[in-house]
Simulated assay, not measured.
Amino acid sequence: MRRVWRRGDEVFAEVALPEEVADAADAFGLHPALLDAALHAMSIASAEEGSGTPVPFAWSGVSLHAVGARALRVRIAPDGRGGVTVDLFDEAGLPVASVESLVLREVSPEQLAVREDADSLFGVEWVSAVGGGSVEADSWAVLGAGGGLLAEGGRVFADVDALVASADELPGVVVLECGPVEGGSVPDVVRGQLAG
């Protein structure tokens, strides 16, 4: 966020993507980090008033007018029905996106506080899908070269079409082998394989 200011009930802001992610703007209709930064203007305005933090609750009338924006000028104003309108423009003043009504709900600092005695509802648990796991060897297949997974008994297919054409019954688990990580992170390689 570069700037934020108020004029009566209206909130205005200027936001921009950091240089290191600006090139990714073309991959989205509206980059999520840019939209998030635009909506932070509401939090800053409410913090000045000493109230709770407003969070988006219900959206209606959302329109995308242009894609690939790297910076936005933001106008947030009351919609007259208990919500706000959000208008997003590029640096030339052309419309990028608009929201006819965004209903907000305030969250207090107490609601956001982490309770040390509370058990988390979420956790990470790895379940083996091959080898000594609970999946039978003939109930899974590998898409791609196979590599080390062949030793575990899976069937190998060049792609999804080959799997569907040759299988009487589709396996319960399909493993897509991603190539070696060279010049990128594991998530980047996986995204590239899935998008390709």
Rank of each mutant, 00 (worst) to 15 (best):
R2C: 00
R3F: 00
V4F: 04
W5I: 05
R6C: 13
G8N: 11
A13L: 03
E14C: 08
V15A: 03
E19W: 03
E20Y: 03
A24C: 05
A27I: 01
G29S: 09
G29Y: 01
L30M: 09
L30Q: 04
L35C: 06
L35Q: 01
A37F: 03
A38M: 06
L39I: 00
L39C: 01
L39A: 03
M42L: 12
M42Y: 07
I44H: 00
S46C: 11
S46F: 01
S51L: 10
P54V: 04
V55S: 06
P56R: 05
A58P: 00
V62N: 07
L64P: 02
L64C: 13
H65S: 15
V67Y: 02
G68L: 07
G68F: 00
A69I: 05
A71S: 12
L72W: 02
V74R: 00
I76P: 01
A77K: 02
A77V: 11
P78C: 05
D79R: 03
D79A: 12
D79V: 09
D79K: 01
G82P: 04
L88P: 01
F89A: 11
D90G: 10
E91C: 08
A92P: 02
L94A: 15
S98N: 06
S98V: 07
E100W: 02
S101C: 13
L102P: 02
L102H: 05
R105G: 11
E106K: 06
V107I: 11
S108I: 01
L112D: 07
V114H: 07
V114M: 12
V114N: 10
R115F: 12
E116P: 00
D117E: 15
D119A: 13
V124P: 14
E125W: 14
E125F: 13
V127T: 10
V127G: 12
S128E: 13
V130D: 00
V130G: 08
G131R: 12
S134V: 05
V135Y: 00
V135G: 05
D138Q: 09
A141N: 00
A141S: 09
V142W: 02
G144L: 06
G144P: 15
G146Y: 00
G147Q: 12
G148H: 10
L150G: 09
A151P: 03
A151V: 04
E152D: 08
G153M: 03
G153D: 06
R155V: 12
V156K: 09
A158R: 12
D161Y: 01
A162D: 15
A162N: 13
L163D: 07
V164C: 10
L170A: 02
P171T: 00
G172N: 08
V173H: 05
L176Q: 15
E177H: 05
E177R: 10
C178I: 12
G179A: 08
V181E: 15
S185Q: 11
S185G: 13
P187G: 08
R191N: 12
R191Q: 14
Q193V: 14
L194F: 14
L194M: 14
G196R: 10
